[in-house]
Write a protein that binds this DNA or RNA. Structure first.
Lengths: 125, 125
DNA sequence: CAATGAACATGTTGTTCATAA
DNA sequence: TTATGAACAACATGTTCATTG
């Protein structure tokens, strides 16, 4: 997962979502569609409304990288609701890599805040 | 110029550059290639290294929108150096729109800082 | 060669369509 | 229907090539 941070302008959405999704998965909270709903509620006041496909693509990427494992389940009591969902769990490798990723992301987030604050300072002070 | 702010994730690079380029042009500082060098120096410590084509494309956009005017000049004393450069100036319309744009951008920059600080808070506190 | 610009290629994200149970 | 996923389209950006004097 230790792909290069873009080292360009600002953070990519995908990297931001990974941080949140890893945390959600680590805490065993829900499945994809649920994560989407939760994130949307949480981010709403910041004007950010992620799309379902971006969430799924991020989850797939984490899976392909071996950071998380997948397991299909039936939601609700069997016989009542046949909706199939996908549950994610951190792999052992994932738990290790998550630590590293979080460290990198802290630096990257701070860099971005610095850049934006610079713009605020340069133009509004 | 009052195009919609993406209202999505973070600010687009183009919007960020506009803010700086408008300011540079308003202060009558240099031509494209010069602006690029200056911005690179200024942004270097924030890990941001804009490309020449992004600068030029942004300048072209401002021109097409009628925010700035263009004038070709010869750099240095004529006869010594024939390098042609393009000088930009704010139009009257541009001066008006710049005020509005800056107001919008302040809100947008603060929104983005808010989103990033939320991530820092959620994951590192 | 410095500056500008266009063409081209890639990356990133959003919208729409498809499928299962 | 809800959840998942893929296919497709659009946009944003970077890299390379071309031109001019």
């Amino acid at each position: 997962m230790s792909e290069q941070q873009s080292r360009g302008f600002l953070l990519k959405q995908r990297a931001f979502l990974k941080l949140y999704l890893l945390d959600i998965i680590d805490k065993q909270k829900g499945y994809g569609s649920q994560m989407l709903d939760d994130l949307r509620k949480e981010m709403k006041e910041y004007g950010y409304n992620p799309t379902h496909s971006e969430i799924y693509k991020t989850l797939h990427e984490l899976y392909k990288e071996g950071i998380v494992s997948r397991e299909k389940k039936i939601k609700g009591e069997p016989g009542v609701d046949f909706q199939e969902i996908v549950i994610y769990r951190m792999t052992d490798k994932g738990k290790e890599e998550m630590k590293l990723y979080k460290k990198q992301m802290k630096v990257e987030l701070e860099r971005c805040v610095g850049l934006l604050n610079k713009a605020l300072h340069d133009h509004y002070k």
